[in-house]
């Protein structure tokens, strides 16, 4: 699949944003006054910038509000609702932390649950697609949640918890990649079953349907960069887990900020792989797989 920058920015930033907001909402990082204002603003900023980025890949963004109408069937629509509901319901908790209103923490608890719901909706947009076997797997929502948990924890959780969650994320990523690498073969679609010509014999492409590129090929038969997969995976693991863990282990609390920035860069790298490596079954018609 085409790793469009807008979708990578969207899933990376809003994932980290909603993760961080959940920690703030639960009061795991207790802050008050202006520090509270800036931390909540950071959480809101990440989430909102991510959501706005997602609008950039739309062909007609002026009609984006229609995306709230189909929550009965569409995970994308549910995500829109969940994100907006979360940001609205977290507002009293944020104001309470900033201005010292002393609202009970369970209000934040509801917001934290909605943060998780939003993350799940985002991941289900990809998980629901049977046409992309690598995504159609329970490890997709698990990975999205693990990213949010680790990213938020670097800024908001006790150091040991953050380190543990970063290590857990590395394990989730590694296991997800291992499963993902065989997902297409396990799903079982081939050029023979895509065309139904397997009932005659062995099928291969004789001539393409057209001599120029088209939307399908640009969007779904993306091949650039697959040969650097092993290197990119090591880089991603180094940035999301190894370097942040080292920085967190040092006795300087201020290092959480660079650790978080490195983690975000690694998350973007891993998300790039998430798209670039995902193969769509339509590629079979073009001979993209044997």
């Amino acid at each position: 699949m085409n790793p469009a920058p807008s979708v990578i920015i969207f899933t990376t930033l809003s994932g980290a944003g909603f993760g961080f907001l959940a920690y703030l909402a639960l009061g795991i990082l207790t802050v008050a006054g202006w520090p509270a204002f800036f931390l909540w603003a950071l959480g809101y900023g990440l989430a909102v910038v991510g959501l706005l980025a997602s609008a950039f890949h739309l062909g007609n963004p002026q009609r984006a509000l229609l995306a709230f109408t189909q929550w009965r069937s569409s995970w994308l629509s549910r995500e829109a609702w969940a994100a907006v509901a979360t940001l609205i319901l977290l507002a009293p908790m944020a104001l309470s932390d900033w201005l010292g209103l002393g609202l009970p923490r369970w209000i934040g608890g509801i917001g934290a649950v909605l943060c998780v719901a939003t993350l799940l909706c985002t991941s289900m947009i990809y998980t629901q697609l049977k046409s992309v076997p690598r995504w159609h797997d329970p490890m997709t929502p698990v990975t999205f949640l693990a990213f949010a948990a680790a990213g938020g924890a670097i800024l908001a959780a006790p150091k040991l918890v953050a380190i543990a969650l970063c290590l857990l994320l590395a394990a989730v990523l590694a296991y997800g990649w291992k499963r993902g690498d065989t997902a297409f073969a396990r799903a079982g679609q081939t050029i023979g079953s895509a065309t139904g010509l397997d009932r005659l014999g062995e099928t291969k492409v004789f001539e393409p349907a057209h001599t120029a590129g088209n939307y399908l090929m640009r969007e779904m038969i993306y091949v650039v960069g697959r040969r650097h997969v092993a290197k990119l995976r090591v880089i991603a693991l180094g940035l999301v887990t190894a370097l942040p863990v080292i920085l967190l282990a040092l006795p300087f609390p201020a290092l959480a900020a660079p650790a978080f920035v490195l983690h975000l860069a690694g998350a973007a790298c891993a998300r790039w792989l998430f798209f670039a490596q995902a193969e769509h079954v339509v590629g079979l018609y073009y001979g993209a797989r044997g």
Binding site: L200, G201, E202, T203, V205, F206, E207, N214
Partner: peptide, 8 residues
């Protein structure tokens, strides 16, 4: 779109 395949 019309593709062409070779079947053996």
């Amino acid at each position: 779109r019309v593709h062409s395949y070779e079947v053996q």
